[in-house]
């Protein structure tokens, strides 16, 4: 029985393990614990199903992000443009 209690997992723990597994960072023991929990718990099973769907949507969306240097560049250009604009306003 001691072995089983080691495998025990609360739903909250299962939820974050499930997320961890979506990013392929759960280890074998964690995956086994999650599997067992999901076998026994309908709510978490549904949650996992949705979570997988969300992952596939995220993959499909193929989101890109600007690097921090690109963002810095935007800020710089905005600042330059802004000071030019205010100088022009002063002239008028």
């Amino acid at each position: 029985m001691k072995g089983l209690s080691l495998m025990k997992l609360s739903c909250a723990e299962a939820a974050s393990l499930c997320t961890k597994a979506e990013y392929r960072e759960a280890n074998l023991k964690e995956k086994l614990r999650l599997k067992l929990h999901i076998y026994l718990c309908r709510t978490c099973k549904d949650y996992q199903h949705n979570n997988k769907k969300l992952s596939s949507l995220l993959k499909k969306a193929n989101l890109k992000s600007c690097s921090s240097s690109e963002k810095e560049n935007f800020r710089k250009k905005m600042n330059n443009g802004n000071s030019q604009a205010s100088q022009e306003q002063k002239k008028h």
Binding site: N73, F74, K77, M78, G81, N82, A85
Partner: peptide
């Protein structure tokens, strides 16, 4: 960049 600038102006 142009968009942000145009927005500012």
């Amino acid at each position: 960049s142009e968009t942000f600038l145009a927005g500012l102006n």
